[in-house]
């Protein structure tokens, strides 16, 4: 089973967490065009490889945090807090 390391509780089974999808999305201004708004709401990179995503320790402490994870191997490459900038991952 995949395990994730909650910044507050440590390493736990994937079943304790809920994935909240892509992180670092920036909400466009209210004056945005329909196209920009639609893209913000629905369109994603959906990468085959490293994905920066948010997770919540839903059946634990309840906190949100960010994860850099490979969507092919499921390797977790970095765990960092909400509000932190994206990590620099070794090439």
């Amino acid at each position: 089973m995949m395990q994730l390391s909650c910044p507050w509780c440590g390493l736990r089974d994937e079943t304790e967490f809920a994935c909240g999808g892509t992180t670092h999305l920036e909400r466009p201004p209210l004056a945005a065009t329909d196209a920009d708004w639609g893209h913000y709401l629905f369109f994603r990179d959906n990468p085959k490889g490293v994905h920066l995503e948010r997770w919540r320790h839903a059946w634990g402490c309840g906190q949100w945090f960010n994860v850099a994870r490979d969507t092919v191997t499921h390797d977790v490459l970095a765990v960092y807090r909400m509000g932190d900038p994206p990590p620099r991952l070794g090439a």
Partner: peptide, 12 residues
């Protein structure tokens, strides 16, 4: 319920 391109399911 998390993005994946790995053609295997999780145990949970």
């Amino acid at each position: 319920l998390f993005p994946s391109y790995a053609q295997r399911g999780s145990f949970g």
